[in-house]
Structure formats: structure tokens, C-alpha cells
Nucleic acid binder design. Structure first.
Lengths: 179, 179
DNA sequence: TAGAACATAATTATTTATAAAGAAGGAGGC
DNA sequence: GCCTCCTTCTTTATAAATAATTATGTTCTA
């Protein structure tokens, strides 16, 4: 069996700048933004480096997506705050960042018989003609996995890298039990 | 138990101006109207103060909605008649207004176990995954209630404020019986 | 042959759908 | 010739869709 491994590919965080934001003005001033309030109430801002995107709401709440590490998340938030200075909004607080979701991708190091797993594991959903992956809710790790027949896996729903690794271990334990 | 209370929030009335109305001309002349005969045969007129809306039909029949008191209904009808003068239609009669429906909202002053009520009360419909309120047809008061778990209620189907209050009392009586 | 949809998780906030009642008067179905 | 839908209004309270991100792999479209 090849070595199991998993790597974080996306971190979703939320934070509050504790300051009202004039989205209309922001959209008019910054070119890397998209704002269609009749479609969605948040303004989209795309940062090139780190390559992330954020949703900014008039309340000052922010959702940042796309970063692969917390360093990149912090950098992104700082760039957003810097951008706000261009419309004369100075954020003086250090925003409290909360991880809401982590997506990780990796492999269990062996091929998987999804049909078999769908029968023997609990909390499973598998409809190959709809989606080729088997959805496995790992309740004990509060994580959800997508399992593919070649052994590749996607882990989502956790809130720390530590839990991603724990979830993978638990997943492998469970896979061994039903083998 | 907190004090039960209920307040009228919408009165629907119908009346007849006893005069043919050229809806096309009316729509072309008045900016606060909408007329799409292929969609609906009535012309919509929106009044700012009182904030109400009315449907006017070529027959001269009128439906007025949105008022919270009969005073506001009367005011609205008068404004419609005044508007008609702009297209040289003079209504000389005093239209006979008939209340068709009253919607009232309030509370019974206590939390409600909707599942329990659905089982023990008659004339009940409760499908929480479709709508969170329980529908309760109070036959003896000719009123229909929407009941919510926090005790808030909506009463509809009555034709007088007096009956709204009677219906609430009857509702509370019935709720006490099954408690 | 490249792209999109399909599915998962999480947050933000707004809109819309859901249900009830009632009138008006056309259109459509059976 | 009936029945349903359309539209207007109002409240209540849920859920879903709207948008962003990311990996995965199958299937379908252009």
C-alpha cells in the first residue's frame, strides 16, 4: 500500500472589520471587484497575490476563500484593509479570523471498491451515474469525504489542519475494518 | 402566560364605481399604474398615502388591498376617484364598500407545540418541511389561523375586526382544551 | 477536445418560495 | 360550462437559491 497523504487546498474563513463598508463606492473605485446587489448582496474582491477571493458585505463582515494556508489568509485580509484606505476607510482593529471550513485533497494509497464501501459503511451516499465519488460522512471526525475508486480523496468540513489529518487516519481505520 | 393580542394588518375590500373605465387610457395617463391585460385583466394602481394598492377593472369594479383600517380604505377609494377625473371620468355616487377579507397578526402569549396540536385538533394541516406554520381552520369562527411554535399567529378569512378578536378568544379556548 | 455540470463543506446577506384568505375578469384546460 | 391560474396585499417562519473557493472523476455538450 502506497503512503496515505493529504494536503489542504482551500481554507474558508470569516471575519468582521467592525466597520460599515460602502460597497457601491468600493466597486466604483476598485477594478478587481464585482458587485451585483440584485444578484447577491456581497461584493466580490479578487486578490492576485495571494490568489484568493473575498466577499465583503456592507455590515463589514468578510468571507475569504481560496487560500491554502493561514498565512495567505492573513495576507489577503491585510490587502483588503489596505484597499479600503483608497476609499478613506481606516480599519484600526486586528480582525478576528475564524476558520469556517477546510478542504483537503489526498489519497488513501490504495484502490477502493466504492460499491462495496457503499454497502458496508454507514453514512454513505453513492450514485455513480450522478457523481463518480462516494460521499462518506465521518461523524466521529466531523468531516465529510469524497472517495474515488483510484484511492484519491477529498476531505471537507473540518476547521483545522490537525483535524484533517486525524480524519484521514480515522477514514483509513474504517476502510481497513470493512476490507 | 403573556397577554394575547392581535392587530389588523391588511383589509381587502371590493366596490363598484358603477361606470366603465378605459384602462388603456388610464395606464397611459397615470404613472402610478401598471396594466398588462394579456397577463391580468385588471389595472394596478398604487397609492402612496395611504399606502395601498387597487385593482381596477374595465367594468368599474375595484379591489383595494393593503389598508390597515377602514378609514384608510375610504381615503384610498377617494383618491382613485380623484385620479379618474384626470381622464375626465366623474364618479358621482358614493361607492358601496364591502370587506372581503381581513388579515391580522398577533400572539397567543405562549409557546405552541405544533406537532401536538396537529394530532389533537381537528381541521389542521401541518407540514413543517413545506411551511413552518400550522394551518388551523377555526370553523366555529369562520377564520383560518396560521400558528407558529413561538406563539405568533396570523388570522385570515374574517370580515370584521370584531370577529378577529372573537376568533382569537375561541382559538385560545381550544388551545387550552388540548393542553 | 475542451469546457461545464454533477457533489461536498462552510460563511456572509438578500430575495424568493412556501401557506392562508379574499375579490375582480380573462385565458386556458377538460 | 366548470376549474385553475394570473395579480394585489399582509403577516408569520422556514428553506433554498444567489456567489465565492477547492479538490476529485464521469458524462455530456459544443
Amino acid at each position: 500500500m502506497a503512503k496515505p497523504e493529504i494536503k489542504v487546498v482551500n481554507i474558508v474563513v470569516s471575519t468582521s472589520l467592525k466597520h460599515e463598508i460602502p460597497l457601491e463606492k468600493m466597486a466604483a473605485t476598485l477594478s478587481n471587484t464585482e458587485y451585483n446587489p440584485e444578484q447577491f448582496p456581497g461584493l466580490v474582491i479578487r486578490i492576485k497575490d495571494p490568489k484568493t477571493s473575498a466577499l465583503i458585505f456592507s455590515s463589514g463582515n468578510v468571507v475569504c476563500t481560496g487560500a491554502r494556508s493561514m498565512d495567505k489568509v492573513e495576507e489577503s485580509i491585510k490587502k483588503i484593509i489596505k484597499s479600503l484606505e483608497k476609499i478613506n476607510i481606516r480599519i484600526k482593529i486586528k480582525p478576528e479570523i475564524k476558520i469556517q471550513n477546510i478542504v483537503a485533497s489526498g489519497t488513501v494509497g490504495m484502490d477502493l471498491n466504492l460499491n462495496n464501501l457503499a454497502m458496508k459503511l454507514k453514512n454513505t451516499e453513492y450514485e455513480p451515474e450522478q457523481f463518480p465519488g462516494l460521499v462518506y460522512k465521518l461523524v466521529e471526525a466531523k468531516a465529510t469525504f469524497l472517495l474515488f475508486s483510484n484511492g484519491k480523496v477529498v476531505c471537507t468540513g473540518t476547521k483545522s489542519e490537525e483535524n484533517v489529518n486525524k480524519a484521514l487516519e480515522k477514514l483509513i481505520d474504517n476502510l481497513k475494518k470493512v476490507k
